[in-house]
Simulated assay, not measured.
Amino acid sequence: MESIYFTEEHQLFRKSLKEFLQKEVVPHIEKWEKTGTIERFIWKKFGEMGFFGISYPEAYGGLNLDLFYTVIFLEELQKIKSSGFAAAMWAHAYLAMTHLNAEGDERIKQDYLVPSIAGEKIGALCITEPFGGSDVAGMRTTAVKNGNKYIINGSKTFITNGVYADYYIVAAKTDPSQGNKGISIFLVDTTTRGISATKLDKLGWRASDTAEIAFDNVEIPVENLMGEEGKGFPYIMQHFASERLIMAINGHARAEYAIDYTIEYMSQREAFGKKIDKFQALRHKIVEHATDVEHCKVFNYAAAARLDKGEYVVKEATMAKLKSTKVADETIYSCLQMLGGYGYMEEYPLARLLRDSRLGPIGGGTSEILKEILSKMIIDNKNYEPAVN
């Protein structure tokens, strides 16, 4: 099935990326997992290799490649025993930078998108709030216009790269009386006075820095408004389709990694005088999970192909994330079980993979929220439309 979407150039890119990750990233993973801080040098190396610019215009230092190079980038990042490291990379490249490219003016693109592609600046997307969760429209952070400035007050939480980011893409209400029609998007440099970030202690994604951020009378120039005032909500919704598809691809990739690792382990492990990959109960369980993962891959690739053509695949991306993250959790749970006691040991990858995978059905919209969105589309015939810039 892969040959439908991946050319020889794609496969060469995958090989190059694998070699880069094994050489430059894997030797540092255990340190970053323990410290919770990914050192700045690796961001610059990713930038030098062009990995942050895969999907971005050449005018800003990008490569302007098709979406399946991004698919490869996401898949291979899931196979190096740290979904936290992977999250830091893709949250920068496909959450923060997506807004820079889509809604940023030329000044913002030159000052922030160009160095982001080069790995010289790190970005974070700030939408979720302590009392809001998946309820984007219910956010309380405000941005009040005062002369030639906006003054931001409020807080955000669960923000990937929140502590060591150089800039935030912040959603705030410019007109609270308008509900979701009163939300706007801003660029906020993290050196601005009045910002404080607190690192959060998480179950998984330990290498990734996740923060709660407070904005206390933070003043930014009016030029840091991105796009039109009051259009923040449709901008956010526009990009949720790609974020959900990213998390779906991450899901099938880490599940595939778990299966490959477990099959290799089973081929070496002996019990009752034979290799455990000869026990029918285990063989059949692996086959069931492999079938589920392959179904997810085929669906996710098809959705990616449509998104690459410019189609608005919010329904398919929502379905993809809902299913793929569930399949990943179920697959990794079974794979850990097949390793027995060793699956519970930290020196083997399944323990960390199980913790890391649990974020899948939560981040980027919980599975419960996704089901309600799909219910509105499938049962109530609601039609979500893309934002008009």
Rank of each mutant, 00 (worst) to 15 (best):
T262V: 06
G50N: 08
V170R: 06
A93S: 13
D166V: 09
K323A: 02
E243G: 08
M49D: 12
V287M: 11
E316P: 04
C296S: 09
I151N: 14
F215A: 07
T318D: 01
K382A: 02
K18C: 05
A305I: 02
V114E: 06
G62N: 09
G341H: 07
T318V: 01
I152L: 05
Q280H: 09
K202P: 01
V26R: 14
A96H: 10
N389I: 12
G251S: 15
E288A: 02
W90G: 01
L12G: 07
H295T: 14
E219N: 06
M338A: 04
K34D: 03
S267H: 13
T35S: 05
Y301C: 01
G365Y: 03
Q11A: 04
E129N: 02
R352P: 00
N64K: 14
G360V: 06
R107V: 07
F85V: 00
E9S: 12
V218E: 11
D209S: 12
M1C: 09
M97P: 08
P349Y: 09
K44V: 05
T157D: 14
E8S: 15
A281R: 14
L322A: 08
G232M: 04
K297Q: 13
K199E: 08
H284V: 01
G53A: 03
H92Y: 02
Y342I: 06
E129V: 01
P130N: 12
Y301V: 03
I332H: 09
E223F: 00
E346S: 12
T291R: 15
V25N: 10
A86Q: 11
G123L: 04
I286M: 10
P234E: 03
N381K: 15
Y342M: 10
I362R: 11
A143P: 02
E330H: 13
A258T: 09
K382E: 07
I263A: 00
H92G: 05
L354N: 11
V136A: 05
A86S: 14
Y164L: 08
N217Y: 02
V222Y: 05
F240Q: 14
A91T: 12
E30G: 06
G182F: 02
G364L: 02
A255D: 11
L21N: 10
M237L: 12
A211R: 11
H239P: 02
S82W: 07
M319L: 08
A211C: 02
E330N: 14
I29Q: 08
E219L: 04
A96K: 11
V25M: 11
L307P: 03
I369D: 05
P57T: 04
K109Y: 03
S334V: 02
R254K: 15
I276F: 01
V144N: 12
T190W: 01
F279G: 04
A241L: 04
A258V: 00
V170F: 00
T325R: 05
K149D: 14
